[in-house]
Every structure is written in structure tokens, then in C-alpha cells.
Amino acid sequence: MGTSAGEAGYFADDSMIRRVMRKRAVGLTYGLRALVVGAINPLLYVGTAEHSAHRDSPYTRLATTGALFEAVFLGSKTEADRALKFTKRKHASVVGTLPENAGDAHPAGTPYSAFDPDLLFMTMAFTFESAMTMHDLLVRKLTDTERADLYSDFVRWGELFGMPRNAAPLDYLAFDRFFQAYLKSAELFLTDEARLVGSYLAGHKRAYRLQPPAEQVGSALYLLVQGSLPARVRGLYGMDWSLTDEVAFQAFARGIRTAHVAPPLAPRVLANALAGRSAPSYQLIARREQRMIRAGRASMPGVDPRNWVQRNSA
């Protein structure tokens, strides 16, 4: 796909970041997964939740974030610059301190800021790792060279959002060593709210059942997200994962990979449907959430729409 009106974007059409992020199997799954995994970083989670206008409408926030990210991944420079300007303006108010203990590594009073280089890097890290994982699972495994190029593109993407280049490891191999060590470290911690919200996002906790076929589509998406999570992350959420679950997950993922086989094995119409922007699909989910809220139903029952300061000053 090209950029709007033929205008160039920050990434070439044949760049790895565009080749990966225009696959709808990636675009429709990486965001949910990145949020679920990213919630294990309490500074990121609390900083976002405490300053979000969508605390009680997380799918609306996901749709907004997905559209902003996709504008930079796939859009023209004009479109990307609008998204970057909007994000910078929103991030200006995201500064504070942890209001409660979040594990030994993050005591109450630990400062956070949306412009902190380490947190900008962690946002990039969770986004990149989720996109790469879902492409490997649902499209095909990347080669070593492709993986290195994709990482370089994501570092550039992070820089566009304000991340200093030296905040990220030098190359993909260094990143992989860092990320695997991070997953084993004492840094990981889920606050009670992060565990609840992440459990909803991953489908581990379900508040409502949908009408067919939306229920089947949702269950399939949740299976892919849960199955793709690192074992330790599933453990932190208390997710049971049986052999039956693993078999179903692998079979479903294999079926999606098969659909990405190039024509003539797959009809060209199917091949075209598998690529493109995913933001419109996120908007459908956001509109459903807004209808529920207008009808007086909580999107995620148990999640307090007030932030910590509001709850504790009432």
C-alpha cells in the first residue's frame, strides 16, 4: 500500500516495518498483546492509567493509540506529523510519582514521565516485540536479516516519538538479550488494576458474551493473545494454560499462516484482504464500547473510572 496522495512517509513502502505492520494479522493482534505484556511495567501502566481520559473505556484508548501508531507506521509524513504532534501534546501532562508500592523495584514515590528515555524505550520494546512475535506466529518467521532490519525501523519509530537513540540497545541481538533478561527479572510487577485490566484485554476474564459471530471472533483473538504470551507473563496473570489450549492455539495460528501463502495457493482476493490498515477494525470495537457505556454498562466491570488521587481524596 502507498501513502496518501502519493506523499512519502517516514518509512519506505518496502521497509520491514511497513511490510510487517500492514499485515492485518499483525495489526489486529499486536496492540492487545503489547498492552497485556506492557502492564507488567508499573511505571508505564500507572503513568498511562493515572493520566488517561479513557480509564473506563480502554478499547477506545486502544483504538486511538492504534490509529496514531499506524499513522506513523504506514502514513505519509503529513499524517505521521499530525499523530506525533497530538501524542506529544497528550504526553506533556503525563508526569508524577507512583502512588503506591509496585514491587521492590518500584516503591511508592518512584517518579515517572512520558518523556523519560527509559519509558519511551520500553514502549517501543513492547510494541516491537509484540509485532515481531505475532508476525512469526501468524504470517511467517522472519529471517535474521529481516529481524535486524525490523528492529532498526522500530528504533527509528521510537525516535520519532521522542526516544533518544542511545536509550535502545545497539542492535537486535543486544535487544533480545536485554528483553529475555528483563522477563526473568524482579522488575516485573502487576498492580491490582493492571492485573484486572490486562486479564480483560487478554480474555482471561470475561464480563459479557457477544452475539455470534462476534463471540467466536473475540474468542479466537483471545486464544492468539494468550498463547503468544511468555510463560512468566501468563503466570503473573494467573492464567491456566493446558495442553488442550496449546494444541488449539498452534492449530489456529498454523491455519492463519497458511492463508498467507502467496498466490496461486491462496486466491488473490484473499491475499489482498490480508493486508492494509487495521485502525478501522479497532474503531468498530471502540464504537461498541461507547454504546455499552451510554447504555450504563461498564466496559470492564470492577475498574474504577477515577484515578488514584480522585479515589483517595473523595
Rank of each mutant, 00 (worst) to 15 (best):
K205C: 07
T65K: 02
P213W: 06
T64F: 02
D14H: 08
A34E: 04
V225Q: 07
R82L: 09
A125Q: 07
S4N: 03
F178V: 06
D81S: 15
L274E: 11
V309R: 09
S219C: 05
P212G: 15
Y10I: 00
A53D: 11
A125F: 10
N41I: 00
G296E: 13
T127K: 02
A231G: 05
Q250E: 10
D81P: 09
F161R: 01
R254Q: 10
T133W: 00
K77F: 03
M124H: 04
V303F: 05
V225L: 07
F69I: 03
E289S: 12
R177S: 15
A71N: 11
V139L: 04
H135D: 02
S299R: 04
K141I: 00
L170S: 14
L142T: 01
P264F: 12
S52A: 09
D118F: 05
N272A: 13
Q290P: 02
D136W: 10
R61K: 12
S278C: 08
P117Y: 04
V46Q: 11
S278K: 06
L120G: 12
H51K: 07
S152A: 15
G96V: 06
R257D: 11
P230D: 14
A114C: 13
L44S: 14
R297S: 07
S76A: 13
E129M: 03
R140Y: 05
L196V: 09
A131D: 04
F86E: 06
G66R: 02
Y30V: 01
P280I: 02
L201G: 04
N307F: 11
V36G: 06
H135T: 04
Y10M: 03
Q180K: 15
P212L: 01
L210I: 03
F126M: 01
M1A: 14
R232G: 15
D245M: 02
S281G: 09
Q283D: 15
S4P: 03
M292S: 10
F189L: 01
N166V: 09
A214C: 06
G203V: 13
T191S: 04
Y282D: 01
S185P: 13
P99K: 02
E187F: 09
S76V: 05
L35D: 09
D136V: 01
R156I: 01
V155W: 00
G296R: 08
E70F: 05
E70R: 07
T133P: 02
R287M: 07
P230L: 09
A53E: 08
A266M: 14
M132A: 13
L98A: 05
R82V: 11
V95K: 10
G255C: 07
Q226C: 09
M292T: 07
T191H: 03
A231Y: 03
G2V: 15
H260W: 12
R311T: 06
L229A: 13
A8C: 09
W157H: 05
L119A: 10
S185K: 08
A259W: 06
Y200K: 01
S281I: 04
V217A: 15
K88M: 05
